[in-house]
Amino acid sequence: MPLNIDWQQILLHALNFVILFAGLYFLLYRPVKAFMKKRREHYESMDAAAADKTKRAEELKASYEEKLAAADEEIAEKSRRAKAEADEAAAQIRQAAEAQAQAIVEEARASAAREKERMERGARGEIAAIVTQATEKIVLHDSASEAYDAFLNAAEKDDE
């Protein structure tokens, strides 16, 4: 054969390589690859567990936030209701106070009117009595000037 090509030696080389291929596959390649796969699966399971925990924590957080939002809403509602009730109560009190004040004022006015009428009535009686006395004095005892003076004195005394 040209170039010293020998089929027997080619087959011997091929046999050698087949043995090497099989040996390296079973002794080195497969065990190392199996270990790498095992490690990858280990870290993937850890990753999945971490992702699951994160997801659950996020769900928990979302539910808490929802609850907090509901509580805020409830607090605001209660606050609104309390304010409305307080406003209503204040309005009622104010109305009652105004009514009471109105009644007091009217009562005071009526009382003042009654007092005024009573005083006018009293003053009219006293004036009449004074006039009667003065007239009696003038007519019965003194001259007209004395009577007039006596009338004025009596009037001043009354004013005091």
Partner: peptide
């Protein structure tokens, strides 16, 4: 055989020994 075949067997032997 050619010397290359002896080399091939020695290399294979050493590699398999290392792998083992």
């Amino acid at each position: 055989v050619n010397p290359g075949l002896i080399s091939a067997y020695i290399v294979t032997g050493l590699l398999l020994l290392f792998a083992a």
